[in-house]
């Protein structure tokens, strides 16, 4: 069988998610080709050709593909699928935007957010924000998958695949790019941050939320998150929300301050590597999953923590 992997790149450079998707594709026991769709993305195509195990790189280059928007990506990929049994998209905002559009054009139900490949037609994916894992048997003649790249090891270097230039779709399209504004904050983006500091309803007000969390986040180089209770109480904007109804994060360090640990919040952060909880209620459910718990009033604990972090050289 033959699988097409849609490369994750920013035109200038290939991203590591591509290497990880190639591992997932290989686990399907398939010949693997990589599609690099972009504008002036020659370097990314060359990088893809150097990944071990790649049979061929398809390179489509055009201004219409500069932002990899859903309409042109679909117009490019759907016809290519005549030669492939499956297509793998990274489960990034670019991949999640385009994959279902391709699937519907092929009259295929996609398998979303794959975290394990059991065989060429059986995949594991999370539902309920990771509170359950399902094995999905996909017998459709064409398969469309989005893949959670972090669940796979990256394929190594050492390949020398041929690069085939293919025509890019010319349009016209009904959507057009206007502008973009990347990472304007000094803080990392919540879903990509290596460290996250989150606050709950115990903080009591919007002012207190920022007074307590912002300096700690700055010290740790962390993003700031919030529980839904804190968002509903108006302490933090909705896009700070971590949980099943908000953003799902898995940083190396997650610090929960004044968060009791409602089910829906835990669903959004339980895959963090190290979870720290500071809460004055020793029975708070957050302590059941926290690696390090401190039963204390945040008003005393956070300033102490700041001081200790300073002593530790942060």
């Amino acid at each position: 069988m033959a699988v097409l992997v849609v490369a994750e790149h920013n035109n200038a450079a290939l991203k590591d998610a591509t290497h990880k998707l190639i591992t997932a594709a290989k686990a399907m026991g398939a010949d693997v080709d990589v599609l690099v769709a972009g504008a002036n993305a020659g370097a990314a195509a060359q990088a893809a050709a150097r990944i071990a195990g790649v049979r061929k790189v398809l390179h489509a280059d055009s201004a219409t593909l500069a932002q990899q928007m859903a309409e042109p990506l679909e117009a490019l990929i759907t016809p290519l699928m005549a030669a492939y049994d499956a297509v793998l998209f990274p489960a990034t905002t670019t991949g999640k935007n385009a994959a279902p559009r391709v699937a519907a054009k092929l009259d295929v139900m996609q398998v979303s957010g794959v975290i394990a490949v059991e065989s060429a037609d059986t995949f594991v994916r999370p539902i309920y924000a990771g509170n359950a894992l399902i094995s999905v048997h996909d017998t459709q003649a064409k398969k469309v998958l989005t893949v959670q790249a972090t669940a796979f090891k990256p394929a190594g270097e050492g390949g020398s695949a041929a690069i085939e230039t293919i025509a890019a779709p010319s349009g016209p399209f009904k959507s057009s790019f206007v502008s973009e504004e990347m990472a304007k904050s000094d803080r990392p983006e919540l879903t990509a941050a290596k460290r996250v500091v989150s606050g709950g309803r115990a903080l009591g007000s919007r002012e207190e939320f920022h007074r307590v969390l912002d300096p700690l986040a700055d010290k740790l180089g962390a993003a700031v998150g919030a529980s839904r209770a804190a968002v509903d109480a108006g302490y933090a904007p909705n896009d700070y929300q971590v949980g099943q109804t908000g953003k799902v994060v898995a940083p190396e360090l997650y610090v929960a301050i004044g968060i009791s640990g409602a089910i829906q919040h835990l669903a959004g952060m339980k895959d963090s590597k190290v979870i720290v909880a500071i809460n004055k209620d020793e029975d708070a459910p957050i302590f059941q999953i926290a690696d390090i718990g401190l039963v204390a009033d945040y008003k005393i604990a956070v300033p102490e923590l700041m001081e200790e972090l300073t002593k530790a050289g942060l």
């Binding site: 295929v108 139900m109 990771g130 894992l133 459709q140 999953i289």
Partner: peptide
């Protein structure tokens, strides 16, 4: 179109010590 063959609990996370 898809058949769910199994539904499982994710690996459980164990809480650590309190400090």
């Amino acid at each position: 179109r898809l058949k769910v063959t199994k539904t499982a609990e994710p690996p459980k996370r164990q809480g650590g010590a309190k400090v």
